[in-house]
Design a protein around this nucleic acid. Structure first.
Lengths: 333, 333
DNA sequence: CGAAATCAGGTAAACGCTTTCATCGGACGG
DNA sequence: CCGTCCGATGAAAGCGTTTACCTGATTTCG
């Protein structure tokens, strides 16, 4: 591997000058610059990022830890963050925890070792000690979906209550009186919050709605299994609300392969409005969570640009219900 | 940020000793070790990866460049590679190019700067100069889907010809005589290879089958647009073969929203057998490409473990057709 | 019991950059 | 024509680890 020194020798200058050219900092005579660039090209020199980082160049890389890269929700946020980063000459490195608290911890440690510019933690699991560790590290952080704002951490939250209420209301108005909620296993907090939002929404119709809840892993397969279990209890919901679109794919499938028509026999709703939700059959009624915007917010919180008012530390996103074809009036028995 | 030195001071030893316990290399008395570990914990010390790397610790991180992280195919390979890496104490960093040759180049450069243990390039676009640059770098490389084997690069390939032939044969036997192929835009090579596989397969039925091909971006939306364009030409295929499952989602949707029933009116096939393909309605007939295995092969090629016979440099995977419900006998007019 | 090994741990030299700080020539103003 | 300033570049000090290499202190054994 080539080094700055070798490039310098080749160009007949000192390594300091090469560095200056490469980072266009300081004054360098055009002819010298040209000579250097040429040497760089000829030697196929690639700066050693570690040496750069160690030598104190301000970091240009952001970290991102997500729960499950197979769920498009996270990929979309990543994509948006990366795009913003790319636009400004930053990089981002992702890590996926698979909902394991253990892997989360080791990811955080590894990220801390990278001396990043900032870290975003977009997961559903998280224990308090990690939040503290992150806080003490003084590293700029963004939590999403879990965690809390701290002096160095912004917190982006999605309001679940209202859209959940709207959804239940909407289903109720369509005559649904037996509803089920399908969630996914996570480190309590987040799942419970969503389940609770569902239960709270039902409170408005105290007693007039029967309900059940089930949970499984965050995947279409999980959605299928949860649905299978749900129905095997004998409960016959006329509507199933899925904690997210990804799992909703599985509930759709399970329902359909059991011969239930959606939405004629059973209505289904999702959450997130991932691109896929528009392509299911029937297209999925869901709640639009603006991943693109969330990604941008994350970037702004981590790498505030010149003359840009730094956004608040506590941001809540209010998503809108998107009605498509997976919901319809309840079948009258 | 804490440093080795501070930990050493705190534990009353030299930094060399701290390094030794952290990497458990060399002999260190148990009591000393305990003292050090304690200091590490108390100070919340996190080793600086850059310093480690610079100081010559052998790299433990693998790189992976993919075309499109939104396509589950790539995510699956990434997941498998990461799992293998994790099992052996390695890390992997991904980068997505969005099918842009330019971003590919900059990704490669950035990866080269990271002084990785090895790099996997799983993309459909790639110009020859990059292959050369990679070759000259002497970095262990794995190409998939594109590129070629070189002294330091393994090459994992999926055999398209045979399964494509099988698929066409199968459709033909169901009475299909008007077929269309939907591909995606890429840096020529790869797309053409697939289109050609399709055309070659048709050669067996010289003249007895009408056909058309269309292409768009690699996404469900792309699949939808391509299908839309395809049908707007007036051509009425009884079967549409999609270059991959991801795009097939879009062709299914477009067909269905135009009132064509799948498979009664039109059959559809995909490629890859991503998990999603089992959850479409109807479930998709496709070709199973073993992403899990490919991920493992990549790992093995990049980080050959002790006493494991190093796999060949030129590996070809032979995928199998998976028949589900999106294909059926052609409608007799 | 003394010499040779073995152990534990310290010293200091890289590793490849960035970044002061110093230097060396002019260009300029008077 | 000389003193001043700049503008361009070089020298060298880190940055936080790893890793020979070396030094005392213990063991081991004949």
């Amino acid at each position: 591997m080539m080094t700055l020194e070798e490039v310098a020798r080749r160009a007949g200058v000192s390594s300091a000058t090469v560095s200056r050219v490469l980072n266009n900092a300081g004054k360098v005579r055009p002819t010298t610059r040209k000579r250097v660039l040429e040497a760089v090209r000829e030697l196929r020199y690639h700066p050693n990022v570690h040496a750069k980082a160690l030598a104190g160049a301000k970091s240009r890389t952001l970290g991102m830890i997500v729960s499950n890269l197979k769920n498009p929700y996270f990929v979309d946020i990543f994509g948006s963050l990366e795009a913003a980063a790319d636009r400004h000459g930053y990089e981002v490195v992702v890590e996926s925890t698979g909902y394991s608290t253990q892997r989360l911890a080791s990811s955080v440690r590894s990220m801390l070792g990278r001396r990043l510019l900032g870290l975003s933690v977009i997961v559903s699991e998280m224990d308090d000690s990690l939040i503290e560790e992150l806080t003490e590290s003084r590293l700029p952080v963004v939590f999403h979906d879990v965690g809390r704002a701290t002096p160095n951490a912004a917190h982006i939250t999605v309001d679940w209550e209202k859209p959940m209420q709207k959804t239940v209301e909407y289903l109720y108005s369509l005559g649904h009186r037996r509803m089920a909620f399908v969630g996914h296993h996570t480190g309590l907090a987040s799942l419970q919050a969503r389940r609770l939002a569902f239960l709270n929404a039902l409170d408005h119709y105290a007693g007039s709605v029967e309900f059940a809840t089930e949970a499984d892993v965050d995947s279409p397969e999980g959605g299928r299994m949860a649905t299978r279990r749900l129905l095997s209890t004998g409960f016959q919901p006329t509507a199933i609300l899925s904690v997210n679109d990804f799992m909703a794919l599985g509930v759709l499938r399970e329902l359909q392969s059991r011969g239930h028509r959606v939405p004629q026999d059973i209505s289904v709703t999702g959450f997130d409005n991932i691109n896929l939700s528009e392509f299911t059959n029937p297209p999925l009624t869901t709640v639009n969570v603006p991943r693109e915007r969330i990604g941008r917010l994350v970037f702004e919180a981590l790498a505030p640009q010149e003359g840009q008012r730094v956004s608040s530390h506590e941001i809540v996103v209010h998503p809108e219900v998107v009605i498509r074809d997976s919901t319809a009036p309840a079948k009258t028995p």
